[in-house]
């Protein structure tokens, strides 16, 4: 099937498709999913150091305690929360008979919930990261 695709004379596409909320939430879902997957691989590897020696684990964790990684962690939590809530939205679209009708409203709910949880988290997390 892939070989056929390469022989097809699809002319280079023009502008970006101007999809709406549904399309962009799907794009964001993909990107955050990929990001979380890559993080997960690293996270399991570094956590595995607890099996090597307490010092080895503590040493690696110590290198993470700087503002750059701290901000990265905040971004990661943001990605996880979006992926989680948008995932629930996708499930509602798939399993709730009224889901397709209210998909846009549900995306606003996802956004609201995300902000609602991110604000206290950022206050707590960033004061840890920057407050020492």
């Amino acid at each position: 099937m892939a070989t056929e695709t390469s022989t097809r004379s699809v002319v280079p596409q023009g502008t970006l498709y101007r999809g709406r909320e549904g399309m962009w939430s799907w794009v964001a879902h993909r990107i955050t999913g990929l990001l979380i997957f890559v993080f997960l691989l690293v996270h399991v590897l570094d956590t595995s150091l607890v099996r090597v020696a307490p010092e080895a684990y503590n040493a690696v964790i110590e290198t993470y305690k700087n503002p750059v990684v701290g901000l990265g962690e905040a971004g990661l939590v943001g990605a996880v929360l979006f992926h989680a809530f948008n995932g629930i939205r996708v499930m509602l679209v798939d399993f709730w008979s009224q889901g397709p009708r209210f998909h846009r409203q549900m995306l606003w709910a996802v956004g609201a919930l995300w902000v609602l949880l991110m604000v206290p988290f950022l206050v707590r997390h960033l004061s840890n990261v920057f407050g020492g």
């Binding site: 607890v50 684990y57 503590n58 964790i61 701290g70 962690e73 939590v77 997390h125 840890n128 990261v129």
Partner: peptide, 15 residues
């Protein structure tokens, strides 16, 4: 990240 010392509390002892 939220309970206890948050991210700064992470070390071998925590795990």
């Amino acid at each position: 990240l939220m309970v206890g010392d948050g991210i700064s509390g992470l070390d071998f002892g925590f795990v």
